Amino acid sequence: MGIFAFTVDGEDTTELGVRLAEDPVGEAAMYFDFASRRPSQLFPGSLTVEGRSPQSSIPQADLRTAYISLDTHAGEWTATFFLNATECGDLRTLNLVQRKAKAATDELTDYVRAAAHRFAWVSITYNAPRSDNRPSLERAPTGRWKHPVSDEPLLEFLSLPFRLAVIQELMYEQDLLKPRFDVYDFAADQGDQSFNPEDTGLECIPSVLEWFRTLPIPARLAERVEEIVFDGGNEIYLQLIPQWDGEDGAFHMESLSESDIVALPQLKKVQDLGGFLGLQARTALIRCGVEVI
């Protein structure tokens, strides 16, 4: 039926998914092996939100800023519709400045409407009202997200946004830096400090930011970084702000120390797809012989 479920602990379902359309481009870009886990069939029915089509249920203001996904709500339920990257892929090539300029018109809305299969899949979650009388279900932390003590040389960076971009490349692109961080597992493994990542708003989750800030990065991996991509769709940003829409400057990098750049001797190219780099940071990279596009 094209319906699947996500779970953190193998027992409780945290969200439901419904596969609406074929999207080979989007599925190939998933940070986990989505293609082998999602249903082979598409949902054969007609999915509506309180009787309305998905597009009709999404606020017009949100459609004007369409990028990767769009949210709509029905009571305690949230449905996140993921745009079909195969048919709407041009949206991901726009940087932040371009998207903001187009958000003042209906250009992005019309582009989404023109797609024959505009949404690839939808994630459905239920935000149960909390009760002070509900018994606690917290489990003690396992310690699996505690950083081990390292006895080898480590990479250090003055710029946190640059560090995050390096981690994106080593952890989520090359799968070299372990463990592969998952904010939902991390949040559920905090004992009495456990939380729901979906309830954290549009700011970096402090404990997650601290985890990435203090993550040991072995210096031996420096030579494996030949290219860095600054893109609002990078997985590390969605770990830090699960609800982030890429529309603010949360991860912009206005300046960059040359010491950070030379720490990566094989770095040859930086792609600034999201328009994250300030003039000083861009100039520093070029001065060090790095191609910036």
Rank of each mutant, 00 (worst) to 15 (best):
P135Q: 02
H73V: 13
L83Q: 01
R118L: 10
L94Q: 04
A103L: 04
E50M: 09
S57L: 03
S136L: 09
E138Q: 06
N127A: 15
L108F: 03
N95D: 15
D132F: 14
N84A: 11
W77E: 02
E138H: 12
A74P: 00
L91S: 06
L108S: 04
T125H: 00
P54L: 11
H117M: 05
P135E: 00
T125Y: 00
S123H: 02
D106I: 11
I124N: 01
S69V: 03
I124M: 13
A85V: 08
D132Y: 10
E152I: 13
S150W: 03
A66C: 05
F119D: 00
P129S: 09
P129L: 12
V112I: 14
L47V: 14
L70T: 02
L96A: 15
D106Y: 09
P135Y: 05
T125S: 13
A66W: 03
Q98C: 05
E87V: 06
P129F: 12
E50R: 12
D71I: 02
F82K: 09
A116T: 11
P129W: 11
T80V: 10
E107I: 12
Y111E: 04
V149G: 00
L137Q: 09
P54M: 07
G143I: 04
A104V: 11
S131T: 03
T80L: 10
K100G: 08
L91D: 01
A115L: 05
F81C: 10
V122I: 14
W145T: 02
I124G: 04
H147L: 07
T105S: 13
D71Q: 11
K100S: 12
D110H: 12
G51D: 04
D71W: 06
S56D: 15
D90K: 12
S69A: 15
K146E: 12
N95R: 14
K100D: 11
Y67F: 15
V97M: 11
A114G: 07
L83S: 02
S136M: 04
D151K: 13
K100H: 15
K102G: 00
W77R: 12
E152F: 03
T78G: 02
T142L: 10
D62N: 06
A61G: 01
S131L: 10
E50Y: 03
T109N: 00
H147K: 00
W145I: 08
S136R: 07
F82N: 07
N133C: 07
R52C: 07
A85D: 11
N127Q: 12
R130F: 06
Q98F: 08
W77V: 10
G51A: 06
G75H: 09
P135W: 07
T109L: 14
L137N: 01
S69K: 13
A103R: 05
R130Y: 01
F82R: 11
W145F: 15
I124R: 01
C88A: 14
R139W: 00
A61H: 10
T78F: 05
S123A: 10
T105H: 02
H73Y: 15
T86N: 02
V112L: 08
D71T: 06
D90A: 13
D62T: 02
